[in-house]
Amino acid sequence: MTKMHINGSESDVVRLFHLDLPPEAVERFTTQAGTGEWPLQYALGARQLRSAFVDVVSIRDLGEMTLSRYLAEAHQLTGDAFAQMRPRIDALKGHVVILPSQAFDHVTQDLSIATPLRWIGTFSEVKASPRGPALRSASARGRTSRPGPETAPRHRGLTYLLIGLGVLALLLLAALFRAG
């Protein structure tokens, strides 16, 4: 049994598990039942697990794409640890479960991974970097040359429109009252 600590504040981390089950048993194991039973959550020993972030992959369904390439493209995995594990990852057969940090719902918890899961590795996702150069205009620093809302001139057209709609509503109510 593998023990693992999940820090509730972590982000940009992906955990890869091999699932040692026959294909016909995978869906039942990885899908949360309407009664709340979820064998995957039990096998992880997780207190909290969000199904929307659980990625179950049949390696056969990837076709010509290798599993490591799928992980690099779909989960933006990089780094030396990932590069060193690529041959081992690509040698896997059957199904894998991919759990990004979000799958644990930002809850600090200790996992006790049990069969049919086998932990393969924990990897880092590429962190988003800003696109383009830093903004240098005065408005980007929070200053503008335009007057703020407290000094902006009032829009008379909007005021007249609202008054007109109010009068129209009163006239319709009066007509309905007389007809009834």
Rank of each mutant, 00 (worst) to 15 (best):
Y160C: 15
T66G: 01
I6P: 00
F82G: 02
A169M: 08
K127V: 13
P22R: 06
E73F: 08
A25Q: 12
L165P: 04
P23Y: 06
Q102K: 07
A114M: 04
V96N: 02
D61F: 00
P116F: 03
V14C: 09
H75K: 03
L71V: 02
T151W: 13
N7P: 10
R118P: 01
A140K: 14
G94R: 00
G94M: 00
T66C: 01
F53I: 03
A169S: 08
A179P: 08
A140Y: 14
G94W: 01
F177G: 15
Y70I: 00
R15V: 08
S129G: 11
L168Y: 10
S112W: 05
V96P: 00
S112G: 09
L135E: 09
A134N: 10
T2S: 03
T144L: 13
Q109K: 04
A174Q: 09
D90N: 12
R28L: 09
H18T: 10
R28F: 13
M85R: 11
R156I: 14
L21D: 02
L171W: 11
G121V: 06
I89K: 12
L168R: 05
H155Y: 15
P100E: 08
A74D: 09
A128Y: 11
F177S: 12
G36K: 01
L173Y: 13
R88D: 10
D105K: 01
D110H: 06
G79T: 01
M85Q: 12
L19N: 04
L172F: 11
D55L: 05
M1I: 08
G34C: 01
A52P: 00
A25E: 09
R131F: 12
F53S: 04
A174S: 12
G166A: 15
H5E: 11
G166N: 11
